[in-house]
């Protein structure tokens, strides 16, 4: 899944470098907080292990082909997500420089596609399945699900990055149709190989798998922090990205247009529909996501932000009422 330089534009390559740099910066901060000087040599040797292990071909029964283990998933189970992510960056940089596997300009994209998903999303799955109790079945399940999911995300990102770079004339749907199924099969195989190694470690030295867990500073789920992050994302999408919304009809309008020749259905005069429409026109504060009688982009942004806030207030209010009722029932 390593992307070559020729498959990426400087703008996309630069953006992916920036995203990966943020993730790397955060990981470095977390590693420093752990204050474990032994971790750096372990990361270095583990990076070399992943490199060497990925060169071993494991025969896939009944197919005549072979696969290799999923480095990100294995490292995140053994070292935790932050150390694993930094280790994977080292491996990808060396693969790029020494073996032309992935390009220098595409390094940021490759780090994101393989290391970020493998280490961070993989860790979420690993922790969800093995956080409290660990067993052979759970290890196999987490490894397979983690490998499949992270590879699917990676393959999807490759398609998006290639599309945004404008490199190939291949339609996006065809490209996705080629990438995802292939990586589904690869993910299954890589997951099973990773599971075999982790099960061996679990049986030989179980303390190693709990090391990553112990190394991570356990953080309680913070509702305030989560709401804060979601609010910032909502404001960014509602206020910023809404300006770039497509002017083309949506799926339903497109279908209607194909049947009737227009995106809107003609209603009969004096019908209930007309009356309701006139009431809506008089009461709508932001008709068509704009200020009344203007077409400025500010109206679109304002509509996006206001809409996000209203949805937050309504959903938050409903959740609050439900949780209060639950508490009351519990007390009674």
């Amino acid at each position: 899944m390593h992307m070559a330089d020729a498959l990426i534009s400087p703008a996309v390559g630069g953006s992916m470098y920036a995203l990966s740099a943020v993730a790397a910066g955060y990981s470095i901060k977390k590693i420093h907080l752990e204050a474990d000087p032994k971790k750096v040599p372990v990361m270095g040797v583990m990076g070399a292990f992943v490199f060497a292990a990925q060169m071993i071909n494991f025969t896939i029964p009944g197919t005549g082909s072979s696969g290799h283990l999923c480095g990100g998933m294995l490292l995140t189970a053994l070292l935790g997500p932050y150390a694993a992510f930094l280790t994977m960056i080292g491996v990808l940089l060396i693969q790029c420089l020494m073996f032309a596997d992935g390009g220098l300009l595409a390094l940021g994209a490759n780090v994101w596609n393989m290391a970020f998903y493998g280490c961070f999303i993989g860790y979420l799955i690993w922790r969800a399945m093995n956080g409290r109790t660990m067993s052979r079945g759970r290890i196999i399940g987490a490894s397979v699900i983690g490998s499949v999911l992270t590879l699917q995300l990676g393959a999807f990102s490759v398609s998006i990055e290639t599309l945004l770079s404008g490199i190939t004339d291949l339609p996006f749907s065809v490209f996705i149709g080629m990438m995802q199924p292939i990586h589904l099969a690869i993910g299954m195989v890589e997951g099973l190989i990773t599971a075999a190694v982790l099960v061996f470690v679990y049986e030989a030295r179980p303390e190693m798998l709990s090391l990553a867990e112990a190394g991570e500073k356990k953080e309680r789920f913070s509702a305030r922090k989560t709401i804060g992050i979601l609010a910032v994302i909502a404001l960014f999408i509602g206020g910023g990205l809404s300006l770039f919304a497509s002017s083309h009809p949506d799926g339903l309008e497109w279908s209607i247009e194909k049947v009737t020749g227009s995106t809107e259905l003609e209603a009969a005069e004096n019908s209930i529909y007309r009356q309701a429409e006139s009431v809506q026109e008089k009461t709508a504060l932001l008709p068509d996501y704009q200020f009344k009688n203007t077409e400025s982009g500010l109206g679109t942004s304002f509509s996006g932000i206001l809409g996000s806030c209203l949805v937050l207030v309504v959903c938050g209010g409903v959740c609050y009422v439900i949780s209060r009722n639950h508490k009351k029932k519990g007390l009674s």
């Binding site: 071993i56 075999a196 470690v201």
Partner: peptide, 23 residues
């Protein structure tokens, strides 16, 4: 050709344990 699936775990696992000890 390649490593038989019955020894996937022990072979790569041994290499992993040796690597950790080496670290």
């Amino acid at each position: 050709k390649g490593i038989h699936f019955k020894v996937w775990g022990p072979l790569a696992g041994q290499l992993l344990l040796r690597s950790i000890d080496r670290a």
